[in-house]
Simulated scan of single mutants.
Amino acid sequence: MSLDTVVEDIRDEARARAEQIRSDADERAEGIVADAEADAEEILEERQQAVQRQIEQEREQTLSSAKLEAKQMRLEARRDVLQDVRASAEERIATMDEGREELTRALLDDAAAEFDDGSNISVYGRADDEALLTEILAEYEGYELAGERDCLGGVVVESDRSRVRVNNTFDSILDDVWEENLRDISAELFDER
C-alpha cells in the first residue's frame, strides 16, 4: 500500500467519522430542538391556562363586587324609602287634630297609674300642645305643666317623690310600633309577601 492510499484511507475514515459526528450532532440538535419546542408548548399551555384562570377569577370578583354594590344600593334605597315613610308618619302625627285630645288623655291616664296619690306630678309636652295640656291637667289634682319636650305630642310625666319618669310621647309609641312592625312595613312596601 502506498502512502497515498493510506492517507486517502485515513481521510476517508476521517470524513466518515466527521460525517457520523455531524449526523449524531444533527440528531442531538433535532432532539434538543424538539424537546425545547415541546417544553415551550407545555409552558405556553400552562401560561394560557393560568391567564384563563386569572381572567375567570377577576371576572368572578368583578361580578361579585357588582352584585354586592347593587345589593348595597338596593338596601340604601329601601332605607331611604323607609325613612321617608317614617318622616311622613311623624308629620301626620305632629299635625293631627282629630283624636289628639283623646289620645293625650289616654297617655296621661296610663302614666298616672304609675304614681301615688298626693305626689306632685310634673308633666312635659310639646310646645304646640300647651293649651291642650293645660286644659286636660286642670282635671288632675297635683299635676302641673312643667315645661316643653321636643316631641310629636303626648306626655312625659315625673314625680317629685320618686325617680320614676314615664315617657308616653307619640314618639315613643311610634318607635315601639315601628320596631315591632318594621318587617311587615318593609314587606308591604317592597312586595315581599
Results as ranks from 00 to 15, higher is better:
Asp4Phe: 09
Ser2Phe: 14
Asp191Leu: 00
Gln57Tyr: 04
Ala187Leu: 03
Ser2Met: 10
Asp12His: 11
Ala38Ile: 15
Gly31Lys: 15
Ala112Thr: 15
Thr62Gln: 02
Arg11Gly: 12
Ala106Asn: 15
Asp184Ser: 10
Leu44Trp: 08
Asn120Gln: 12
Val6Glu: 01
Glu192Ala: 00
Ala36Val: 09
Leu82Ser: 01
Asp110Gln: 14
Arg161Ser: 06
Thr95Tyr: 04
Val156Ala: 00
Phe115Cys: 00
Leu132Val: 13
Val177Thr: 15
Asn181Lys: 05
Asp35Glu: 13
Ala127Pro: 11
Glu102Phe: 14
Glu41Ala: 12
Asn181Ala: 04
Thr169Ile: 09
Gln61Val: 05
Val166Ser: 08
Glu30Trp: 14
Ala29Tyr: 12
Ile55Gly: 14
Glu144Leu: 07
Arg11Ser: 10
Asp9Cys: 11
Ser122Met: 01
Asp128Cys: 02
Glu58Ala: 07
Arg28Cys: 03
Arg149Cys: 13
Val156Gln: 07
Ala40Glu: 12
Tyr124Pro: 06
Val51Pro: 10
Asp84Arg: 14
Ala70Asn: 04
Phe170Glu: 13
Asp26Pro: 09
Ala127Asn: 04
Leu75Trp: 05
Ile32Cys: 02
Val51Phe: 08
Asp184Trp: 08
Ile43Glu: 08
Ala16Ile: 07
Val166Glu: 14
Ala16Trp: 04
Arg47Tyr: 08
Glu58Gly: 02
Val123Met: 06
Ala106Phe: 14
Ala66Asp: 09
Ala87Gln: 07
Asp150Leu: 05
Asp80Phe: 00
Val156Pro: 08
Phe190Asp: 00
Ala14Asp: 03
Arg28Ile: 03
Glu158Met: 07
Arg100Gly: 06
Asp129Val: 04
Ala25His: 13
Glu30Ser: 13
Leu75Glu: 09
Ala25Val: 12
Asp12Trp: 09
Arg183Cys: 06
Ile10Glu: 03
Ala29Phe: 11
